[in-house]
Amino acid sequence: MLCQNCKKQEATTHIKRVINGETTEKHLCTDCAKKQGYDYDGFFDDFSLSIPNIFSGFFSDTPLALAGLRQDRCATCGSSFDEIIRTGMVGCADCYERFYDRLLPSIQRIHGRAKHAGRIPYTVVDDKPKAAADEKPQAEPTTEEKIATLQAEMQKAIEAQNFEQAAVLRDNIKALKGEA
């Protein structure tokens, strides 16, 4: 990545600022970073900085067919799927539920086709004692299952008067039925 300021040298200093929920990022070369007062000539790992960028990269080949879904937002935090793609950051816990199907391909590109196998918080254990254990191991959903999922989503979209989205889903269902 080139320095945003001089656009000549490789950016080595990455500054991300989050103010009132707005994220801004700066990528500067060592010289420009010094000039602008980011005089961190020490070295430490920038692990947490590089990861969101990698994730945005994972998203970048998301099919354009999804462009029609842009307007639809998480009811809890107001994030659109488009914003999640652009920033590489999910807005809130409910976004994972809201955009589950669309996030899944990217999640699988990072982690493989995996299901959580670690600890479960007490609160969840109390609510649903055996939920995690009962679920059968994750398998490739059949075409019928995919269609059922899409139909449920389409129903939701219609109820929410989100006809643009419903139309896209209807086309996807049609395509899947053609396959079957």
Binding site: P52, V90, G118, A131, E135
Partner: peptide, 18 residues
Amino acid sequence: IAFDERLGYLTQCPTNLG
């Protein structure tokens, strides 16, 4: 705590899910 049975602990960046 933000948690999902399939995805585990929910994190802002999906690289840390699970």
